[in-house]
Amino acid sequence: MKAWIRHAYVSIVDNDRRLGLAMLGPAMLYIIGFIGVPFVIAILLSFSNATVGDPSIHHFVGFKNYLEVIHQPQFLIGLRNSLLITFVTLAVLLVLATIEVELLVRKFRFKRLVQTLLILPWAMPVALAAIAWLWLLDSQFSPLDWIFRQIHILGPGGLFGPSMHFYYLGRTDLALGSIIIVNVWRMLPLAVIIVLAGRLSIPQELFDQAQIDGAGFFRTLFRITIPALKSVLVVATLFTGLLVFGDMALVDLLTSGGPGNSSQILPYWAFLQGINGGDLGAGAAVALFLLPVLIAVAIFALRYAYGSHED
């Protein structure tokens, strides 16, 4: 036997199967422990009459929680608002993200500074952002109102006068609009980063060719860029859409679902029912209500994205 063979040994990195398990293991444990288990518990809770005071899930009540939840007026309002906020946010996001990406792929002065500023909303803590927005949208001290008064949109003789304030968070339509605007502001950096990565992966020769073929800005955008970005836009929509749909912190901080329940959304209502109201079963039922729909949307979107990639 040659000398070096005695010193050779097979380590874990030589075995793909074991190496794979070792590297995936921590992530798997994390997902099972912090997502899988709570998810199963949530499903069990939604079929039980568990409360915060008695969180045992021994007593199954079937679909009672779901039926009760549907029959409350907040449910329909919450469902409608959740869908409305998500869809309008996404529509505005897609347009703004596309514009911003087209801006960022071009060369201009202070591009790095602009890039940094545009990413800031994503880096900012929600609570900090909420304080800034609460001030901007304040019923008495809103600087926006002040600007509108200066240009005679508000105040005596103004377009929306004689009131001196818009009361952004105090009127249903404006409250929903405000939530949408802050959502867009928060999600735009994420959408831009996803779309920008896709945009930069399109070969430059395609754009050169389009220029030579005689295409102007809009023809290039709609006939070359957007079709090439199709799958990336689907992914960006899916990601931001699920984040917007599932988020309750923003509504909690801005309007707390008010005035009344008019800006209520499903995730926040689930939190109010299950945690604040103590009815764990009902809260879980609300939270899980749209799960089948969301899963179906996610599967459909991802399939579409992969499909258009192979084409």
């Binding site: 020769e205 395609l206 050169d208 060719q209 220029q211 084409d311």
Partner: peptide
């Protein structure tokens, strides 16, 4: 787009979709 010059690139740059 206002010059009547046609160019064929190395990669052919066909519009993939």
């Amino acid at each position: 787009r206002h010059r009547n010059v046609a160019m064929v690139f190395q990669s052919y740059a066909l519009y993939p979709h």
